[in-house]
Design a protein around this nucleic acid. Sequence first.
DNA 1: GAATGCGCTGGGAGCGCTTTCACATTCGGG
DNA 2: CCCGAATGTGAAAGCGCTCCCAGCGCATTC
Lengths: 337, 337
Amino acid sequence: MTTGTPRRQPTLDEVAERAGVSRSAASRVINNAPHVSRAKREAVRRAVDDLGYVPNATARALATQQAGSVVLAICGDDPAMFADPFFAEVVVGINAVLEQTDLELMLLLATSSRGHARLEQLLRTHQAGGVMLMSLHGDDPLAKLADQSSVPVVFGGRPLTFEPRYYVDADNRGGARLATEHLVASGRRKIATITGRLDEGAGVARLQGFQEALAVAGLDNSLAEPGDFSEDGGAEAMRRLLARAPDLDAVFIASDQMAVGALRVLARAGRTVPADVALIGFNDIPAARHTDPPLTTVNQPIEALGREMARMLLTLISGNTPTPLILPTRLIHRASA
Amino acid sequence: MTTGTPRRQPTLDEVAERAGVSRSAASRVINNAPHVSRAKREAVRRAVDDLGYVPNATARALATQQAGSVVLAICGDDPAMFADPFFAEVVVGINAVLEQTDLELMLLLATSSRGHARLEQLLRTHQAGGVMLMSLHGDDPLAKLADQSSVPVVFGGRPLTFEPRYYVDADNRGGARLATEHLVASGRRKIATITGRLDEGAGVARLQGFQEALAVAGLDNSLAEPGDFSEDGGAEAMRRLLARAPDLDAVFIASDQMAVGALRVLARAGRTVPADVALIGFNDIPAARHTDPPLTTVNQPIEALGREMARMLLTLISGNTPTPLILPTRLIHRASA
DNA sequence: GAATGCGCTGGGAGCGCTTTCACATTCGGG
DNA sequence: CCCGAATGTGAAAGCGCTCCCAGCGCATTC
C-alpha cells in the first residue's frame, strides 16, 4: 500500500527474505501452523504488513490440490429461467454462509449444451471444491453423474428420477397437501390445480400433495392443468380450467407467478376471489401480498434453502457426511382463500 | 470415461507418454500452437480422447499468470439487494457472452465489510482476469480504487463521484426526461417525482432528467420525495407526496417496484389512474404490464447491459481499449399515463 | 553420559502446466 | 551444392505455494 507502483504482487519468498526466515517458516505463519518461534512469527507478520502480501490463491490451490471455490449450477433449458427471483434469494442465502469462509462462489448457468459440457467437465476435473446443483429437468443424466462424482455435490431440490445422496429440499408435497386441505376444510368441493413443470421434482411433488389431500377427503382429484411456473402459463392454464370445469370453486396453483396470471383471468371472467373461487399459490413471493385480493400461499424458506445447501456442501468438503434436509413449508393465510 | 474408477485426472505428462511425444509437444497440441507435425498432433489428440484428458485450469492459470475467471461484484449495504430481479437479468446477459469463452463467472456480493475486503483483495492480487462492478453506493472509496486497479474493471452504471474509465450505463437521465416530457405533453401541470436512492448514480440521473424536463417546460420541478427503489418505499413516498400536494396530477417514479407501491396508495386514496393522476415508472419489469392499470414505464435493456459489460471486459482483457457505452432507454406506452 | 523426545528450522521436491531455448531437420533459391 | 530460413523437437526452467523430512539444539529421563 505504500509502494507507488504496486506492479507485481509480493511473493512468499520476498516475505521470507524480508523477515529473515525460510520460505517454509513464512508459509507456516501465514497458515497459522505450529512450529514457529514467537520471534519469527512476528517478523513474518511485520513483513506481510509492510509488503502488503496476499497469498496467491492459484498457487495455493495447485499445491494443496484443492480449489478455493464452489459452484452453483443452475440447469435447465431456458437461460431466462434464472430470472426467477427464486434463484436470487437462494444466492443470497448461499453467499451468507460462504462469506464466513474463504471460498468463492462461481455461477454456472448450465442452460445450453455448452454450459452442460462445462458443468460435466467441472465435475470431472477437481477444479471446484464442490458444486450445488439446482433445477435439474426431466431425466437429465447429469444428475446421476453428479451424484456419483468424486467432487462433493449437493442438490437443491430432488431430481425426478432418483434420490441423491445429499440434498436439501423444501417440503413441497406437505405444503401442497396443507394448502389443499385448507381448501377442503373451508367447504370447497370442486377443487382444481394448476401444476408446475412436471419434469421438475417440485412440480410433481406439489401435484402429489394436492392429489393426496383430495383423495383423503374423498374428492375428485383429477382436475389438473399443466402450467410452467410462469405468469402467462398460469393464465393459460386458468383459461383451460374454466372451460373444462366452469363450476370449480377453488384452485391450488403451484406457483405465485402462475396465481397472478390466474387472478387476471378470473377477474376478466367475472369471477370473484375468494367468493366464487378460492385460490392458493405457492412460494410466497413479495408480490403475493399485494395482489387483489392478497394471495393465500405456501411459504418456503428460500434463503434458508440456499444457506443449508451451502452449509451441507461445507460439511461434505470437510469430509463429514451430512444427512439430507427437508425444509418445512407453511401456509400463509391471506384473503384469496 | 472408460475407466471404472476415474480416481485421479490424467495429466499432460501421461498424455504425452501415451502419445509418444514430449510434454512440450503435447502442450502445443492442446493449445493449438504451431510447430507440431501432423502425425504427432494426431497421436496426441488420440491420447487425449483415450484418457479423457482435461487440462487442469489451476495449473494453467499459475503458469500463464492469468486467471480463468472474471467476477461480478455487487456492492451495497444490503445483502437482500441482490434479490432485485434486475441483477438476475444482468447475470443472464453476462452469462450469454461468457459462455462463448472459457472464462468462469464468480459472483461476489460485497455487501458486508467482509465482502468489501474480499473485493479489495481481488482487485490487488490478480486472481481474477477482470471484474465487473455494479451498484456502488455513495462515495464508496472502492470505486476509485477499482478504476485505478491494474486488473481490468468495468463499471455497470456510473458511481456518483467520478466518471470511471470503462463503464456501460443506461441512459437514465434521457429516459427520465422522456417520461416527464410525455407527462407534460399530455397536459399535466402539477408533476411530482418519487426518486430512487440518491446515493446511487441511477437515482440521481433519473431525478436530473425529471428536473430538466420540467425546467424546460417552465414548470415547478421541486416536488420530489425520496424513495429507495422498493415497493414499500414507493408506497411511503406516495403517501407523503399526497399529503404535501393533494392536487398533483402526475408523478414520475424512478422504479416500477415503487410505482406498484404508489399505485396501491393511490387506489386506497380514491384517485383514479390515469384520470386523476398519471403515473410513469422506470425499468419495465414484467409485472408492469399486469398492474391495474398497466404501467407506462421507461424500458432499459438490462440483459444487454450485462452483455455489454461482459463484452467490454473481454476487450479490456484482450488488451484493447473500449469506449464507455450508454445504452438507450425508451418509453413504453401503456395505460397509466 | 547415552538415549529419548520435542520444538524449531530450512532444504527441496513436488502440484500440472507453459514457454524459452538450443538443437535437429527440412526446404527453396542462388 | 551450399546457406539462410522456416519448421519440428524435447530438456529444462519456471509460476507461487505447501509440506515432508532430515537435522538441529535443548531439556528430560534412566
